[in-house]
Design a protein around this nucleic acid. Structure first.
Length: 321
DNA sequence: AAAAGACCCAACCGCCAAAGT
DNA sequence: GACTTTGGCGGTTGGGTCTTT
């Protein structure tokens, strides 16, 4: 169990809601094991919903909201814990470009992940990198960087990971580096891993509703010639299809999350600096960098990866140099 | 080893819409 | 139709943990 103690004192009975004296008795702050068990047991017998009365009937000195949040974000049996995988990262980026901060909507496509978790991920990881790039996370620069640099790189890494898994996994495996492998097939090659399970039993490939390419959701890069990088990497509306991107559906099924194999992808969010090594895609070759260590302390990325670099790079690409 | 700063994330807040009375 | 309750959402907070100095 997570022994983390929350910021608010457990003994604080100060009510957050401004109403009556009834709430003077309410607990706030971290949940105890006893409270968790009480809530779990009650829901097991009576089901969820009607959270305020549930809290009362269960004898929990908590608001209904608090019970609901605790259940949905932590206690639900299908809540998935552990690091966000590469595929999930890709999905989050993709879906965020479509829906913005609609965390709950995004979470629907990542079964077991809560909106809170995705929101936290976005804030702690993605926004951090926007900050590093000295641009706003909602700016066009940053969005384009995500679409045309990070996301393709993520796909590449997913493919690489699956290729590596397939070579280690099978005796007569396919030659590494097949450029047509998709993340879905990639996952299918890693027998007995989480993705295999997901793709083969419960989830369907992308059914994200198509998004019309409007001035808002398209970019200058997307309007470049067919020979440009933008043409090599499809606009985001086609992104999932292009890469056969798995969109997890139907979170109410009996999925059986297996977190153990995720370590292969742990904390591997790709650095923007990685794209300078993107030789196979026609990127100008720049100095080598420990690009994949973005989150692992790749200090060098800060020094040369900035918006100016990105745009000069894209200018080159757009000009089809 | 200790201090400082950065990071992570559980939990809370306020707002809103839908449902109920 | 007005009011109240409930549930859900996105935004924010702040304390524990981790990393760096």
């Amino acid at each position: 169990m997570d022994a983390k103690v929350s910021r608010r004192s457990v003994s604080s009975f100060q009510s957050s809601d401004h109403d009556d004296e009834d709430q003077m008795d309410l607990r706030r702050g971290p949940w105890t094991v006893e409270e968790d068990l009480t809530l779990i047991n009650y829901i097991a017998h009576h089901g969820e919903g009607r959270w305020n009365s549930l809290a009362r009937c269960a004898g929990l000195k908590r608001t209904g909201k608090s019970c609901r949040l605790r259940w949905l974000n932590y206690l639900r049996p299908d809540v998935r814990r552990g690091n966000i995988t590469l595929e999930e990262q890709l999905l989050i980026l993709e879906l965020h470009t479509r829906w913005g901060n609609r965390w709950s909507k995004i979470a629907q496509y990542l079964p077991g992940r809560t909106d809170n978790e995705i929101k936290n991920y976005w804030r702690t990881r993605v926004q951090k990198h926007a900050k590093q790039l000295k641009c706003d996370v909602n700016s066009k620069q940053f969005k384009d960087t995500m679409r045309y640099l990070w996301m393709p790189r993520l796909v590449e890494r997913i493919q690489a990971a699956s290729a590596a898994a397939s070579t280690t996994n099978n005796s007569g495996g396919s030659p590494g580096g097949s450029s047509t492998i998709t993340s879905a097939t990639a996952a299918a090659t890693t027998t007995d891993n989480y993705y295999h399970h997901q793709f083969n039993s419960n989830y369907m490939v992308s059914q994200i509703p198509p998004v019309a390419c409007t001035p808002e959701n398209s970019s200058t890069a997307a309007t470049t010639s067919s020979d440009s990088f933008a043409a090599q990497v499809s606009p985001v509306s086609d992104f999932a299809d292009q890469y056969n991107l798995p969109i997890f559906k139907n979170p109410n099924t009996d999925y059986d999350f297996r977190v153990d194999n995720q370590v292969a992808f742990e904390e591997s969010f790709t650095s923007p600096a990685a794209y300078f090594n993107y030789g196979s895609s026609g990127f100008p070759s720049m100095e080598q960098n420990n690009a994949d260590d973005w989150l692992d302390g790749g200090e060098t990325s800060d020094s040369f990866w900035n918006v100016e670099n990105i745009w000069s790079l894209q200018q080159q690409l757009n000009n089809n140099v």
